[in-house]
Amino acid sequence: MLLTLYGSVARGSFRRHATYRAATFAGAFTNTAFGFILSSTYLALWHARPGLGGYSAEAAVTYIWIGQALLATVAVWGGGFQDELQARIRSGDVAVDLYRPVDLQAWWLAGDLGRAAFQLLARGAAPLLVGALAYRLRLPHAAETWAAFLLSAALAVTVSFAVRYLVSLTGFWLLDADGVRALVGITGMFLSGMLLPLALFPGALGAAARVLPWSAMVQVPCDVLLERRTGGALARALGFQLLWAVLLLGAGRAVQGAATRRVVVQGG
């Protein structure tokens, strides 16, 4: 029964985002354009330094296009439900949400998963297809790898959701969560591996980046699809994502509880 409720929230969110046709088309176009720009940059880099970070030039270009496919889906630098939730917190409308007998975090998570599913199809598949036509991409043949990638991408969205949910909730105390959001967004862009694979980061910075939650958003699903993580390493990679998802969702629940008490007891 509960699953059907949140399932219908997710489906509704999917269809809702499907109504934004012009925005979706423009977004997919941008992802494709950036795919080309970054690909030529990477090719130049890997021409100078072959095998950099353990990626062949072909794998590096594939990494770019997977990254572009995940950019909107995972919403590394914020977005999705965030605009709406932040606006509701600022205006106080969030109090109205408490009238409904639903779990707020689960409600917004379901909506974000629905959005991500649509964007993976619309803004993920299309650029990846164009990239595959323009370059020789190293995409896997094994169906299991694609299945593992979908699972990894779902976990990536969940981790990203959990971070964005925490950022939005700061609005209860800061009045405006936009500053925190910008800061976390830039950090995420850098530490997720969206700009450059984390294997290329030097020493301690690289080691730290690889265990922070942002690497669960882009680096891990990219490596899964590139078959850099197989067997036990694949299980560990998914476990790593799951761990961050659980930890951050738990933190979100705790903060949500404090925020609700603040509204209910102090009057917001």
Partner: peptide, 11 residues
Amino acid sequence: TTVKMLTGILV
């Protein structure tokens, strides 16, 4: 304030 208390979102 009254309505909020009657609906349980304010103690």
